[in-house]
Design a protein around this nucleic acid. Structure first.
Length: 351
DNA sequence: AAAGCGGGGAG
DNA sequence: CTCCCAGCTTT
């Protein structure tokens, strides 16, 4: 068996990685479950933001069986604040699929792993290489940036053709003898050295980087799309009666599916003829695709009044509501109004 | 092929 | 402010 020669690019970034890699918990293991969990958490999420979530989740659910058998609400509560909540729901669906279709043994090849819900080409390649040494090149935002610069690839990374172009290039560079380290190295290099606004002065690739020699580092990678932000209004009533709160789970399509909220004002509220006390609300809540304006009020309903409960809502104790996952907008509303006793009762012990 | 989906940190 | 993060799913 002939050993294919190591491409100079690959040799350089792997040597750089040996010197500069961060010590991260999911790099200390080859357990595919722990690696999978870390990769789902890190989708569109920085290491610093995902790290505490990984620690809490791997502690709460040490095995794929624990995750599969957990109440979905407890998982979403642990995911609270991390965003992209469909990741959490798909995570548990996949865990249940591992238990049912793979007898509890995590699938060991790219072609099987990518069938799990929430696992796409990037995540499947990451798990297959890190846990099983399969030579599948990862292509994420870091890889787009590094390869587009070093090899002056002008393909628009927002185009649908980009994945194929960069996957082919990365796959041609991955060394069969150590694909896992190469994949780790190219992403770590993108995260720490070849950043969006890099300092090229100490880069080990400056002599061979096409973008550097052509003074085009700032132009690459090329990305065309700009996200358009829609402004919306979301006004809430914190309605209390008998020490309970009127709340609901967001089940419709759209943002925050599976998360819980107070009464969202969508009509004139003629059914609630009581005085409202204004709450402090964050001026705007920014999502990547929404700019949410929020106003909120507190309403105390007399204990003996028979309220006509709106469709989809129900009464819940403060402690039960605290245990549900809530969007950060609601968490901010709660923590900004701790002078309101019932909101103090649902103040989160951690984000 | 394009849109939808969270939240936060860096510059 | 803008950009983008160890992207995937749905339309």
């Amino acid at each position: 068996m002939q050993k294919s020669p190591l491409h100079p690019f690959s040799a350089t970034i792997m040597a750089w990685y040996a010197e500069h890699q961060r010590e991260l918990p999911w790099r200390q293991t080859q357990d595919p479950y722990a690696i999978w969990l870390s990769e789902i958490i890190l989708q569109q999420t920085r290491v610093a933001q995902g790290l505490p979530y990984f620690e809490r989740l791997i502690t709460a659910f040490p095995t794929v069986r624990d995750l599969a058998e957990a109440p979905e609400a407890s998982l979403l509560r642990l995911w609270q604040g991390l965003g992209y909540y469909s990741r959490a729901r798909n995570l548990q669906k996949a865990a249940q699929m591992v238990m049912r279709d793979f007898s509890g043994v995590f699938p060991q090849s790219y072609d099987e792993i990518i069938r799990l819900p929430g696992v796409g080409p990037y995540t499947a390649a990451a798990i297959a290489s890190f846990a099983f040494d399969e030579a599948k090149a990862v292509v994420d935002g870091n890889v787009y940036r590094v390869l587009s610069r070093v090899f002056a690839v002008e393909t628009d990374i927002a185009s649908s053709a980009a994945r194929g172009v960069f996957t082919s290039l990365a796959q041609s560079l991955i060394p069969m003898q150590d694909p896992a380290t190469f994949n780790q190295a190219i992403m770590e290099f993108g995260a720490l050295q070849c950043t969006p606004s890099p300092d090229c002065s100490d880069c080990p690739l400056r002599v061979s980087c096409a973008a550097f020699s052509e003074h085009r580092v700032a132009e690459l990678p090329i990305k065309s799309k700009k996200t358009k932000v829609k402004e919306i209004e979301m006004d809430y009533l914190v309605i209390e009666q008998n020490g309970q709160l009127l709340v609901r789970e967001r089940t419709e399509k759209g943002i925050w599916k599976g998360m819980w909220e107070f009464y969202l004002i969508e009509d004139a509220c003629d059914w609630l003829p009581f005085q409202r006390q204004a709450l402090k609300s964050p001026p705007v809540h920014l999502l990547s695709h929404r700019k949410i304006h929020c106003d909120a009020w507190y309403v105390q309903v007399p204990d003996n009044f028979e309220l006509e409960i709106p469709e989809g809502y129900g009464w819940m104790s403060p402690s039960d509501f605290e245990s549900k996952g809530k969007p950060v907008l609601l968490l901010n509303l709660i923590t900004d109004n701790l002078d309101c006793p019932i909101l103090q009762d649902i103040s989160p012990t951690y984000l």
